[in-house]
Design a protein around this nucleic acid. Structure first.
Length: 565
RNA sequence: CGGGGCGUAGCGCAGCCUGGUUUAGCGCACUUGCAUGGGGCGCAAGAGGUCACCGGUUCGAAUCCGGUCGCCCCGACCA
């Protein structure tokens, strides 16, 4: 491709909207263009990268016998109503009507459709296991898209679905898929972490995520430097160690705390650490109001709580609702004599003594509140988030908290969809059975951003060869080298290299800057050195090393460098 | 959904507070020519705008007022 004709616009100034390095560079190098919040176009240069990534994914998926297909982007609402997700999915699911009033959704994911498809199409265990996948646009109406392409509303995803006879078959596919993902991310030169994302109490429902560490990522992950344990914050467990101190139970007393509502205020007001306090939060759930009690320095793990209570809805109750239902002023709720709703209590609470809590009366708090003596939990469980200083559940070492970007997700679905959608096959024994399913996603359009986050310098992107939009850029300086450049360009192209030729009538500096920004792995430079020595220079983007070679050696040297880059 | 900020040329911005010499300006990019040709060089001449939209106030609105829409950031969990 001749750069003079290429549809691209690199720019010096970064649009104000861009915060993260990858977002800035993608805009600067002209890979993407935004049209609306979370809605982007891929320009030719950006699309080439995407195309390379897609090729890698296809290759690796095909290797394990997965079959590619393409499902519709617009789905009828019917299937979603059947699976229950029409109601459960929430506002991220974009629903709309056609001219006849028929209800549809823009696909945020495809479990329903694929389950129906396979349910209709496969009758016998003889065809199992089956893995199908597609690479397609998804739409999720995110409340707040951010970070450019990282959290977009419209994005490209590879989603694969496996269908097995039984759970052990699923295990095998799951392991295979894990290895495939490792292969894909390694080929993209991504430094990733495989993170446990175990989904709680329902046995065997295993889940893993592939996360790249990045400050601009929006997932919190927890890791143990000692044994390598890693997990998403909401899914993490910790070693519950609470000191059993010898403290005596003190007498329960009410104190006056006018206008003191938050833990922070209370802590300042009394000069006591938040760990000596309890906070009581009221949540609205599917089955009404619940009161949740954790220590003042702890945070509630809503993901766990949701699973524990088996509820879809889990929102903090508003001031009004709390007053009406419990008669308590906001800021003064407490566990003692909280009779209007069930008390869900974190296990750290019942291990402690003499807490300070709300009194359920305005402007009053209680001191020396003791579990068991002063209040009686309906349920005690581990419902708080891991925080700094907590111990690893595997080796008791101190856990670390970092941030990361989720790129891939493996999930064992079991019969979650095959059951409600009645997707069955005949087993060997001649009986109807439900498919045991797994699903496996990769955020394809996130990969370029993640790769840039991990492969760049001040000048711009440094594409790994396998995903680079072009392998080589020819930079010709001045009219004297134009003709020879053209010949080299055509020759390299004929040999099968992906070559960009900067034939623009611009100063050398501009061309170098652009080439660096675009991150093309190898430059072939024709300038003074060619005019004086009849040699071209080949410069590596990543290491900056320069080789001078005669015309006939260009191709072999390039090939050699590409292999090792 | 709450809070904050912003909307002026493809991009980055100034002008707005205090309405009228502003024919709406600057830098980058773009076009033409000169010059130059190894790291965003220089000179000259150009082209490019319904000042987000709708309404109001006024003799007069990018500027003041009201509304709408869009975009960005933070929060959406500490009772």
């Amino acid at each position: 491709m001749r750069l003079s004709r290429y549809f691209i616009c690199t720019c010096r100034e970064v649009p104000r909207e861009a915060e993260s390095v990858s977002h800035q560079m993608m805009l600067k190098a002209g890979l993407i263009k935004k049209f609306s919040a979370g809605i982007y176009s891929y320009l030719p240069l950006g699309y080439r990268v995407l195309d390379k990534i897609i090729a890698i994914i296809k290759e690796e998926m095909d290797r394990i016998g997965a079959q590619q297909l393409l499902l519709p982007f617009v789905q009828p609402a019917e299937l979603w109503k059947k699976s229950g997700r029409w109601a459960d999915y929430g506002d991220e699911l974009l629903r709309f009507q056609d001219r006849k009033g028929g209800e549809y959704v823009l696909s945020p994911t495809h479990e329903e459709l694929i389950t129906r498809l396979v349910g209709d199409g496969i009758d016998s265990y003889r065809k199992l296991p089956l893995i199908l996948y597609q690479i397609q646009i998804k739409f999720r109406d995110e409340l707040r898209p951010r970070g450019g392409i990282v959290r977009a509303r419209e994005f490209l995803m590879k989603d694969a679905y496996s269908f097995c006879q039984d759970f052990s078959g699923l295990q095998d596919i799951y392991q295979q898929m894990k290895r495939t993902y490792e292969q894909i991310f390694t080929r993209c030169r991504l430094n990733y972490k495989l993170v446990e994302a175990e989904s709680g109490p329902i046995g065997g429902r295993v889940s893993h995520e592939f996360i790249v560490p990045s400050d601009s990522g929006e997932d919190s992950i927890v890791e143990c430097k000692n044994c390598g344990y890693t997990a998403k914050l909401e899914k993490t467990s910790y070693l519950p160690i609470y000191q059993r101190d010898e403290e005596k139970l003190q007498e329960l007393k009410e104190i006056s705390t006018p206008g003191v509502k938050t833990i922070e205020e209370l802590s300042q007001f009394l000069g006591v650490s938040p760990s000596r306090m309890l906070k009581t939060l009221l949540y609205q759930t599917d089955r009404g109001l619940i009161a949740v009690v954790v220590r003042g320095d702890h945070q509630i793990n809503e993901t766990k709580l949701r699973e524990l209570m088996d509820t879809q809805q889990l929102t903090l109750a508003g001031d009004e609702l709390i007053k009406v239902k419990t008669g308590v002023e906001i800021g003064f709720a407490g566990p003692v004599k909280m009779e209007s709703c069930p008390l869900i209590v974190d296990e750290a609470v019942v291990k402690g003594k003499n807490f300070i809590t709300g009194s359920n009366r305005k402007d009053k708090h209680l001191i020396n509140v003791n579990p068991a003596r002063d209040f009686h939990p309906s349920l005690v469980d581990n419902i708080r988030l891991v925080q700094k200083g907590d111990k690893c559940p595997q080796c008791a070492n101190i856990l670390n908290l970092t941030r990361g970007m989720e790129l891939g997700h493996l999930f064992q679905l079991g019969t979650k969809y095959s059951k409600p959608l009645q997707a069955t096959f005949l087993g060997r024994e001649g009986r109807k059975r439900e498919f045991v399913m797994g699903c496996y996603g990769i955020g394809v359009s996130r990969l370029p951003a993640a790769i840039i986050e991990q492969n760049h310098d001040e000048e711009g992107i440094i594409w790994p060869v396998e995903v680079a939009p072009f392998q080589v850029i020819i930079i010709s300086m001045g009219p004297e080298t134009l003709e020879i450049s053209r010949r080299i360009y055509l020759d390299l192209q004929k040999q099968g290299l992906e070559v960009l030729w900067d034939d623009r009538e611009l100063r050398a500096g501009v061309k170098f800057k652009d080439a660096d920004l675009m991150g093309i792995p190898l430059k072939v430079i024709l300038g003074n050195t060619y005019l004086t020595e009849r040699k071209v220079e080949i410069k590596e983007r990543r290491r900056g090393q320069i080789k001078k070679v005669t015309s006939d050696k260009i191709y072999p040297v390039l090939m050699e460098l590409l292999k090792n880059a």
